[in-house]
Write a protein that binds this DNA or RNA. Structure first.
Lengths: 111, 111
DNA sequence: TGAGCATATGCCAGTCAAGGCATATGCGCG
DNA sequence: CGCGCATATGCCTTGACTGGCATATGCTCA
């Protein structure tokens, strides 16, 4: 199902793209420069991410603005969710008190 | 970093294996039968999962028992975590009240 | 409308993962 | 100690993905 989404995430460059987009929407050119990739390569990665439903293109002008598409991420997380209980249990067992590690629902201030 | 872990998850068969292991540890033979895969293929998938740190082999007798290794999952979730806030916001915006969707730290009761 | 920028696509060669088959290894039992 | 079961590994072929390059497309502006 999420099939393509997982495959998309398996590439480091693509995860890097997402990490940039997570902060703010970017135009292709910005990504090219930030990631030190060639323009065609970047476009191809974006295509993969787009078809995986992980990103969305906004401006259809000359500059195409890419943004994160949260819904697909939700699907990934949904798959991962059942497993979360497992390592939470393990951590508890180890006495890891760290209040909600970094796994909170809405904080994400890290770095 | 998690590099291999993502790649491992990109295969449906492997996710199926994990879904089985999540419920209880399984011997290779059980997986073969449950997933309708050939034995060598299954072993190879298990190898990938093992090297990705997603599973662990317990009994070193004739029957090798595979179990989920929670730690690697934590790494994946850690990467995913920053994105979680994004779709939570979207959902909130849409008026989704559902307290902490299913994203709590220690519940995961959803189906 | 013609030039130029930003982005996408096509084509090609190299690489890598996957499945099928045969076979090797590890282990317990008679 | 030799046999047989459970699992792992090797080899091979095929298909998919990647990056580089050249080039096509879409859009804006003079």
């Amino acid at each position: 199902m999420a099939e393509v989404a997982w495959a998309a995430l398996s590439d480091p460059a693509r995860r890097a793209v997402l990490d940039l987009l997570r902060q703010r929407p970017h135009a292709v050119g910005e990504l090219v420069q930030a990631l030190q990739l060639t323009q065609p390569t970047t476009s191809k990665h974006l295509r993969v991410l787009r078809e995986a439903g992980l990103v969305r293109v906004h401006g259809d002008a000359q500059r195409r603005i890419y943004t994160i598409d949260p819904t697909s991420f939700a699907a990934l997380d949904a798959w991962l969710a059942p497993y979360r209980v497992l390592w939470n249990d393990s951590l508890d067992a180890l006495g890891h008190h760290l209040d909600r590690t970094g796994t909170r629902t809405r904080t994400t201030r890290r770095t």
